[in-house]
Design a protein around this nucleic acid. Structure first.
Lengths: 148, 148
DNA sequence: TGACATTTGTTCGGCCACGAACTATCAATA
DNA sequence: TATTGATAGTTCGTGGCCGAACAAATGTCA
């Protein structure tokens, strides 16, 4: 009955959590009439929300933890849907600066709200102490994987 | 200093664990001279390994938890690299049966070994009791998300 | 048996994600 | 100053992943 522990145990679980979280976010975005945005954009928007000035692609790359080409694609998508705009830096012709448009800024409240509801739903009634320990343990797992 | 808890807390962590796990697997596959296989194929192969007879795409779809079109693509990739073969069912002309090739079966030992090393590395020195509780808590999170 | 519905897969378009190759710009230095 | 090297982004090819549309085979039922 009890199968040998396999990758498809905890990793599958982590994968499913990710999927369901993404699903939840997609539904909430739809509910709020926000279109063209996917869960993957969250990290980019989250970073842009807390900027007062246009930022270089390079900064987004570092913060988002995605590769350059990936960020190029995501920013293009966001631009295509009118949430951000790009322009060349006057100081350094190599860097492309990105900033939120009015439409981009306008979705911030919904974004924050969805984020909060997501956490509430995820943790449910789990006591804060348990939440902390859980995060600590996940941090440990991540360290284990990172370690040579 | 302490930021308000955000999606980009625990979910980012889960995402990074997933990424590093995938990275680890890719490296191990390369180390074992296994080419053309990606971490995402694991769930498909894992299922095929424990089958004694050819299985329908539909079954893979259900077990893998991916959508039909995704499985079509993955199986095609695996077929292209010679790990599986497809053929139409004689009984029901609609179903496509999939089975491992000799090459496909041959990588099973490496697959199992990588899986084990992955778990060892992931958990490190974490005591079994903690492991269990961690999995339980993740199960709880998943249930929370699934719950209406 | 013929019209309609269901089931099974594939195809197509869109997006994320990566790596490799490439372009353009700026920096360093001989 | 001209050559070389570093830096910032984009493009391209491969592939997972989804949803929608589609084709083929089977089931149903009048």
């Amino acid at each position: 009955m009890t199968e040998k522990p396999h990758i498809n145990g905890i990793m599958a679980q982590i994968g499913r959590i990710r999927e369901h979280a993404a699903l939840f976010i997609e539904q909430e975005l739809k509910r709020n009439e926000i279109h063209g945005i996917l869960p993957a954009h969250g990290i980019v928007l989250f970073f842009l929300f807390q900027q007062q000035h246009p930022v270089a692609m390079k900064e987004i790359v570092e913060k988002a933890g995605r590769v350059k080409s990936t960020v190029t694609g995501m920013v293009n998508t966001l631009e295509h849907h009118g949430y951000v705009e790009k322009f060349q830096s006057p100081q350094d012709g190599r860097v492309m600066l990105v900033q939120l448009t009015e439409k981009g800024r306008s979705i911030r409240p919904a974004f924050e709200e969805i984020s909060g509801r997501m956490l509430d739903k995820l943790y449910g009634g789990m006591p804060p102490a348990d939440r902390e320990k859980l995060v600590d343990q996940l941090t440990q797992l991540l360290q284990n994987l990172k370690g040579a």
